[in-house]
Amino acid sequence: MTLWEATDHAMRLLLGGDESLWRIIGISFKVSGIAILMATPPAVLTAFALAWLRFPGRRLLISLFSTLLSVPAVVVGLTLYLLLSNQGPLGDWRLLFTQSAMVAGQVVLAFPILVAMGHAALQSVDQRAWETARTLGASFFKAFLLVLRESRFGLLAALLAAYGRIIAEVGASMMLGGNILDYTRNIPTAIALETSKGEFAQGIALGVVLLLLASTLNGLLHYVQGKGGVSTP
């Protein structure tokens, strides 16, 4: 099959609403969406604590998170696999080869990105922002929200970057989800499988979806970072 034929077939699959294809896409968005939703609140709190509070071990944590940034997805996958396997300490949860296991893997992957980029964003907020809020009588929570708002573009950039990583990630999803049809087969694991079978058309169709998604995220990221540039005082 030539590249052209495969691409042509791929487009017809995509536009024709091929059911199994769209189910795979749906699983990808569901799993990564849940993962990002679960990872963001604790990551933002952690980033805030690292940027605005002083406590022992803070520097250590900061360097720990930047180290975690470069841990390959397969290592995360393997570690969680060993934890979640029936032989592992969390085996009784019976989570291996479920969507929950994929979510867990993606949360672990997204967390350090969110913390590291969120930390950078929150740290760049002027100290006076917090002080002004507090001295105007704002509660701790209101001042916290204000600082988040002041760094919203940086935080959004962190969110997009983390989402971009986990939705395209194949190693951990493959290991933890098991690539089960209609359950844990998402876009990247499906691409891996389809190409291994020589079904290039479906691989290309899914690749196109990922590509579109990646360029959308990238465009948003650029837009957001441009915005962020304007808003610095």
């Binding site: 569901k30 799993v31 849940i34 939703l37 679960m38 609140p41 949860w93 019976r94 989570l95 479920t98 969507q99 929950s100 979510v103």
Partner: peptide
């Protein structure tokens, strides 16, 4: 977390 884990629930 609770609501999303319901979604992802076992």
């Amino acid at each position: 977390i609770f609501s999303t884990s319901l979604l992802a629930g076992p």
